[in-house]
Design a protein around this nucleic acid. Structure first.
Lengths: 245, 245
DNA sequence: AATTGAATTCTGGTCGACCAAACTGGTCAG
DNA sequence: CTGACCAGTTTGGTCGACCAGAATTCAATT
């Protein structure tokens, strides 16, 4: 499968070995990978092959290699996994309805999360939402800060299920959509509207009304979409996402 | 970003260029990538660098390179994106509660999908579900076929929203969980139970009852989880055992 | 003694050459 | 005329060497 990719190269065995060592903790996260030459000696392969191994592991997200430095070991987390997607998704977004497609997914997922929150949020969760909402309100005048608090507010919903995958997904969404999101520099008036959306969502959740919460979330994001959309629909292809297969 | 992650190398510029060409269609999907030497000549870099480019693109999922053959261009799709995750997720699953974490996500997402289906499935969708259910019923005696029809039944829900991301996600789930999934499920009696679960879900969707649908799905998958769980909980959650392969 | 800067060494980046498998075509036997 | 075999070419895989930037060390100066 994914590991054995499709290769048959000598490098592959080494890739698996290093992967094992990283996962098992023999190569602790944060540590530096041994110098390429050491690996050459250890595995009896050429430097080029080692190099290939490093590139592969880097792309897999298990290593973080800066231009001229030793690669740093990074134990994989779900967030790591999603960041590995980055490259491809970036291109997918450029294709026809890419952004809309992704945004739709976000709406869908977040609607479910909000519903879930309305049904099973604990007191602490509600408190966290309230706090995030307040910070969001306080930042209405500050474009940048509002942006951050906006993201933070939504982020809370991704943490409520307590499953590490959701925050990772959220992070990925933010990352991927950030450019578009930002193209439409927000005005205080706009922020006011968004904040109102957040408030509606919060209140519905607080009142334990899943339907209303989902509805509010849906309305809020659809609204946001309508605004974002304009930023890159100067002459769009018109194709509307759906019905792909 | 993925670009910037490793960048600094000469190879990076080439990676971006090739990426562009693939996305733009200049390098059509299915075609073979030009020989490495051609690229060497064209970009004025060494063979090793070209090689690195190819490895990178392969890992990104834009190329499919078999051991001793010319790489094949693969236009990225959302499915491609998820398959890129494979390597990491495979390892994540081996860590402590990895499988459960992922399975929970599946339950969560699929519950939302089922609910969505109950609310907005079209006639064709219902018909597709009915057909899938029937095929599933007919296969109760056949372990392998049942497996396939089981997956196929669930798959229908992922297609209903009409967003290409969901089928890709489903495919990824199946891929990642398949091993565990397969460790058990092989008795007709068990299949009977599962089919009943499917039927309950279908009927709820058909009757346009989102609550019941979600409930049925949740029960069905939780049940499946309970069974799957046993297949790898012989010793348990705590110590992470192995080193082994 | 502390600091700084230059020389040394270490390490990653790049390259060109060599090897072996795959592909091509052309020829010869049936 | 057809098909299998063989040689030449193409092309990917591997390697060792060389280059340049980064880290380290150590000594000279303040």
């Amino acid at each position: 499968m994914a590991d054995a990719t499709i290769s048959g190269r000598a490098a592959d065995a080494v890739v698996e070995e290093i992967e094992r060592e990283i996962v098992s903790g023999d190569l602790a996260s944060g540590r530096l990978l041994p110098p390429e030459r050491d690996l050459v000696a250890r595995f009896g392969i050429s430097r080029a092959a080692v190099r290939e191994v490093i590139v592969t592991l880097t792309n897999k997200g298990l290593l973080e290699s800066k231009p001229r430095h030793r690669p740093v070991v990074r134990k994989p987390g779900f967030d790591t996994a999603f960041s590995a997607l980055g490259g491809i998704v970036t291109h997918l977004l450029k294709q026809d309805g890419g952004v809309k497609t992704l945004f739709d997914v976000r709406i869908f997922l977040e609607a479910a999360l909000v519903r879930h929150a309305a049904l099973s949020a604990r007191k602490e969760d509600i408190a966290a939402l309230r706090a995030a909402l307040e910070r969001n309100r306080a930042a209405i005048e500050d474009p940048v800060l509002f942006d951050n608090t906006d993201v933070a507010f939504h982020a809370v919903f991704y943490t409520i299920p307590g499953n590490p995958v959701f925050p990772a997904v959220h992070q990925a969404f933010v990352h991927w959509l950030y450019d578009h999101w930002q193209s439409m520099r927000r005005s205080p008036e706009q922020n006011l509207v968004y904040h109102a959306g957040h408030r509606d969502i919060f209140e519905a959740v607080r009142d334990r009304d899943p339907e209303a919460a989902e509805q509010a979330l849906s309305a809020h994001l659809s609204e946001a979409w309508a605004t974002v959309k304009e930023t890159f629909e100067d002459g769009a292809t018109g194709g509307d996402t759906n019905r792909g297969a």
